[in-house]
Design a protein around this nucleic acid. Structure first.
Lengths: 125, 125
DNA sequence: TCATTATATGAACACTTGTGCATATAATCA
DNA sequence: TGATTATATGCACAAGTGTTCATATAATGA
């Protein structure tokens, strides 16, 4: 029986930190609130279906049933995701009769998609 | 009893599509494979803890226990998330003795973080 | 008015994901 | 060699998320 004396590893007693660096960084960190928003914003791009919708709208404005056709998914799933995209102000829409046309909200969204694409293309060599 | 004649809504019989637009868009869609990678890439940014790590590293290189200090989280949680960030090539690292120093991988990551930040700042007015 | 059509949404369920615990690994020092 | 320390990781579980089904809403035309 080794009876390893159960080190209770005092959580806040870490020795190796660079206190100056930690202070500098802590000082410049945006508020938790902003960082939460930022994460939530990126989360919107982090789903296969939503990325497909955005990539489709990257080319041109489309109505919901066009998107249903392009994605080959059922209308409910598409609408649910459009709601998320709307909520994050990533797409905008206009109504015309019964139909609703969606398009990318602004150029930030375009840039983000392009930057992301660039990154993964590089990764793939 | 209204006996609503249970319309079996033939999935592929949507009338309203703009077939030309749909064709144009379908034609230019990247492969499912690429879009999956893209979504997975953004997914990495879509988490509060990981965004906090990236924001910290935005300023300067830090070792794991610095990050533990900055985030006020336990070491295991931080390591788990660093693994995800490494896997997506969003951070790079160098070993020095027992310690491992992390930093942002490249300028795409910086740009993405900045673009994202710009977007949410605008949203907030 | 009623039927039809395009889109939106609530509920339920399967699946994913982040965290903490315990422990492993690997580097340093005595 | 054994003890200590910095970091990594497997497992389990709670919490979150995407899809489908059923249905609601709203606009159009008969």
């Amino acid at each position: 029986m080794t009876e390893t004396k159960k080190i209770p590893r005092d959580i806040c007693q870490i020795q190796c930190v660079h206190p100056e660096a930690v202070d500098r960084v802590k000082d410049k960190m945006p508020s938790q609130d902003i960082l939460m928003n930022l994460a939530d914003f990126f989360k919107v791009f982090g789903d296969h279906t939503r990325i497909r919708i955005l990539t489709a709208l990257y080319r041109e404005e489309l109505c919901v049933c066009d998107l249903v056709e392009v994605l080959g998914m059922n209308q409910s799933a598409v609408s649910h995701q459009l709601r998320v995209l709307r909520g994050a102000k990533v797409v905008k829409f206009r109504k015309q009769g019964k139909m609703v046309y969606y398009s990318l909200d602004d150029d930030h969204v375009r840039e983000l998609l392009r930057d992301g694409m660039d990154h993964i293309q590089e990764e793939r060599g």
